[in-house]
Lab assay of single mutants.
Amino acid sequence: MDSLVVLVLCLSCLLLLSLWRQSSGRGKLPPGPTPLPVIGNILQIGIKDISKSLTNLSKVYGPVFTLYFGLKPIVVLHGYEAVKEALIDLGEEFSGRGIFPLAERANRGFGIVFSNGKKWKEIRRFSLMTLRNFGMGKRSIEDRVQEEARCLVEELRKTKASPCDPTFILGCAPCNVICSIIFHKRFDYKDQQFLNLMEKLNENIKILSSPWIQICNNFSPIIDYFPGTHNKLLKNVAFMKSYILEKVKEHQESMDMNNPQDFIDCFLMKMEKEKHNQPSEFTIESLENTAVDLFGAGTETTSTTLRYALLLLLKHPEVTAKVQEEIERVIGRNRSPCMQDRSHMPYTDAVVHEVQRYIDLLPTSLPHAVTCDIKFRNYLIPKGTTILISLTSVLHDNKEFPNPEMFDPHHFLDEGGNFKKSKYFMPFSAGKRICVGEALAGMELFLFLTSILQNFNLKSLVDPKNLDTTPVVNGFASVPPFYQLCFIPV
């Protein structure tokens, strides 16, 4: 009986604490739906499609509103004006990374994606500088992407125009580009180590996009005490870190300090320079996690976009025909596509942009946080508050993009057929937390897609009208449904 009384008292205290925290903070924060004790607004949000729920709530509470995930307040920004004001106009104040408990377990605050403060700034600055020195957006990395595009075309030829699921092959190409940047090595598509790495990356994007992960991140005790797919994700990350550590040891034994070959060499050189400046942010643990982040951000996002792009091109054969006509006119058949071609191919450029806009790969991006107490639109948001960005509300804005739910390359073309930029184009987020590999991803999408369409016609196994382009999961990332196609050599 005594234990029951204690339990009831504990629960009562928890409920009172929950109510007090919510009521004391709500006077400062933007308005929002009334949260339930302990669980907050979790029942009012469709976990399978958070973005749709945010759109519905914005119609009631406006472009800036507050939700509670458990006891934790989260300020939501919906629509271009609110997102721009926060991420661009007040970029420094909104540059923090929001709480992501599962990532905390995986990387302990290291790396480039989930770190904060001085650690994040130094690692991000170093990573950007190193990638630029190796030619991100310049010639040397373009050579690597072109080489991988040629290998991709050869792998597709091996399908002999038979029906195939493109998931694996389209994942190999961007993964190999990242391998060449980090390890100075590309792998054969049949290499077992490479296959294991690909498998872990593919599993992780599916797990991260599941409703279960949303629950884990908002009720963090689940991570330590409950079984579930989150444990598989943590094991996959541990596998990748151990693999990278092996490569780091190989580099330490063979590195030429006067001739760095890749990202690992550059990081080890930085560690050597910083060894007298303790404590340094440049450690082996930081290198492991930064490399894992580059793999995660640079492989599955690009391969998922490529997979979605081919599905949309199957669905819209008239678009595919126009792209192939432009390829034939500008590039021809006797040389590989290059980035200089893009400025002469406005329709193809528009298609690449429209694919990214339409699929809305990361509907709410990753959570941000404010780095200080900030007054925002007459609300006071306390330091450390998590900020949720609705990228969907920007990419699918119906004023900027008429009929935003329709796939239409003319969203990025003017009346004369010239490519038209849009400030609403934010597939990689915006501001200080914009994806480090934005330029690389854009290069890969253009070169891989043009190389495929230069060499193959795409054949659907069903009537294009019957192809479903609805994402199968739409949590962290929008993942396309399973499909097969035939690559018919031109």
Results as ranks from 00 to 15, higher is better:
D262V: 02
Q252W: 09
M339I: 08
E250D: 08
I182T: 04
L208P: 04
L453F: 04
A297M: 10
S162T: 14
L314P: 01
K420V: 08
M198Q: 09
M345E: 00
G111H: 07
V145K: 00
S162A: 10
A350M: 02
P409V: 08
I205L: 10
F219E: 01
K383L: 04
Q252P: 04
I99L: 12
E203I: 06
L195T: 10
T304S: 10
K273G: 09
K322V: 10
F187Y: 11
T55L: 08
A82S: 07
S209V: 05
F110T: 13
S53R: 12
G40P: 02
G137F: 15
L268W: 05
T302S: 13
L306S: 01
G442P: 06
H230R: 07
F69L: 12
I244L: 12
S280R: 08
L312G: 01
P260S: 09
F482W: 11
N133G: 14
N133Q: 15
F401L: 05
L71W: 15
N398F: 11
L9P: 05
L170V: 07
V352P: 02
R333L: 14
G111L: 03
T301V: 15
G332F: 02
L54Q: 01
D341N: 00
Y243T: 09
F94T: 07
I141H: 08
I99G: 12
C266V: 13
F448D: 02
M198R: 10
A350Q: 01
S280M: 09
A106M: 10
C435L: 14
P37G: 04
G437S: 06
H368G: 08
L152P: 00
K459M: 05
E285M: 07
E285K: 07
N217W: 08
L313T: 03
F100G: 11
K241G: 07
K118Y: 11
E285Q: 07
I88A: 09
E328Y: 15
L306H: 00
C10A: 15
I215A: 10
I488P: 03
G109Q: 13
D265V: 02
Y243M: 14
L90W: 15
G111V: 02
I181W: 06
R144K: 10
C175S: 05
G117E: 09
V479K: 13
G117W: 05
I215N: 02
I222G: 05
G296Y: 15
I50P: 11
L453A: 03
K52F: 07
C372E: 15
T302V: 08
K383E: 07
M136N: 13
Y189M: 04
E288R: 10
A321W: 10
M136H: 15
H316S: 06
R132L: 12
N231L: 07
F239S: 13
Y61S: 01
R186G: 02
I99E: 14
L380G: 06
F126L: 08
I47V: 09
N259M: 06
Q146H: 05
K160G: 12
T34S: 15
Y483S: 01
V237T: 15
I112G: 09
P211D: 07
E199F: 10
S254N: 12
F428R: 03
V319A: 09
G27E: 08
I374W: 10
E415C: 15
N466P: 03
T301C: 10
V153P: 01
H396S: 09
F183S: 04
R333C: 12
N41A: 01
